[in-house]
Amino acid sequence: MMQLALDKWKESIGYQSGLLAAICGLAALILVLVELWTRPLINQRIEEDQNALLDEVLAGATYANKVFAKSEAIDIQQRHYEIFTVKNGQGGTTHFVVRGTEEGFSGTISFLVGVDTEGVITGVRIISHSETPGLGDKIELAKSPWVTEFNQHSLANTPLWGVKKDGGTFDQFTGATITPRAVVNGVHTAMQALAKNMEEQPHDAN
């Protein structure tokens, strides 16, 4: 008798809406708590990733400032770049780091370029991309050393920024031309953005 009444009560609108509300509330509460708990940890991990990439594009050069804390935005050729300044212990500028994006074969490729004060590239790394696995993903250092080809290049010593197929300096991959072409264009434009920024507001280089 008791069981029957309980079953009947469970079929009522009141019980069902109450149940859904309780489940939603409980789920939201748990997620909020976990979010509060993991957010600082996740931010720390993201920062570690960025700093690891920073070390790589600066080819191991040391720095004393919080590089990603302050940026200058610059728009060139309808693209948006962020320029970060790397300083040594004495407060002098040693390198610049440019973060930019470029449309690849299947989505946006986001990259970081390290440049010394002479305008020579010290390193390029891909932050994120969604290129075809096995073909376009050779732009990642983990999969292929291709991206190190940029080292030592500058606007002054490289007249033709392009893949070899287009008469340029950089290799393409077998089976994928669009991806390396996009990265080369992106890095080239990033270098131009940096040059433009230097002209407008010269940094003290010591």
Partner: peptide, 20 residues
């Protein structure tokens, strides 16, 4: 969980688990 609302309830459980 009563029969009529079991699907939304289950979807909330699964989505929360994945987010977690």
């Amino acid at each position: 969980i009563s029969k009529a609302v079991r699907i939304p309830a289950n979807i909330i459980i699964i989505a929360s688990l994945v987010t977690l």
